[in-house]
Design a protein around this nucleic acid. Structure first.
Lengths: 102, 102
DNA sequence: TTTACAATTCTACAACTGTCGAACTATTTA
DNA sequence: TAAATAGTTCGACAGTTGTAGAATTGTAAA
């Protein structure tokens, strides 16, 4: 992943509400009973936020666009999943220096 | 560190030029001969960028403001140092889920 | 002291962002 | 089929951002 793509991920997480949204999805997915699924309902996440539905929709699109999550419609609902590789790569870049020290 | 502060750090790293600037400072500091110093000359970093001095100055202020670096004047020059704790905390938040799995 | 260099401050501006309300689509339920 | 629910799209707008040019400050070298 090049610097521009990393910056894009950073930008996706640079808005407090969007970061909370991502972290909430992360938590909810981790807490999922069906461990093999690791998905969560967007409607469950939404209710803990005070911002409107259009804004949530916009933020989800940004997170998706940055490669941080995927979403899928399941009937009436939308489910979200974390793309772990993306955040792992970001952490790797930020750890670059320390790794070299080993 | 709360979510807003994490978002602030993300925002500081969300501009490609500013991210490159941070990573370049990181690399230069790591490569510093005097290991106990871990500092680098801003003028050395600047020349690898095609953006102007006022913009670099602005970006350095943003990085400083986010708690990612510190700067200090040494005679005619400005030296920069990485504040490692800040980036470590960001990585911790993003690793929250995996940590719990242990 | 004059000149040159490193960096900052100020001003301005086009482009982008976060948010909302209104209208809309898709799906389920009554 | 009609009503309700979940989410999207569109249009608008105030606020923010990245950048450069011009002028300025601080420091060192000639």
């Amino acid at each position: 992943m090049n610097t521009k793509q990393i910056a894009k991920v950073m930008k996706a997480l640079s808005n407090p509400n969007r970061l909370e949204l991502y972290l909430e999805i992360l938590r909810k997915c981790e807490a999922s009973f069906k461990a093999e699924d690791r998905e969560c309902l967007v409607s469950d996440v939404m209710c803990s936020f005070k911002i409107g539905a259009p804004t949530i929709s916009h933020h989800l699109k940004e997170l998706t666009n940055a490669g941080l999550i995927t979403t899928e419609r399941k009937g009436k609902f939308l489910v979200a999943r974390i793309i772990e590789d993306t955040i792992d790569e970001v952490k790797d870049v930020l750890s670059a220096a320390k790794k070299r020290k080993k």
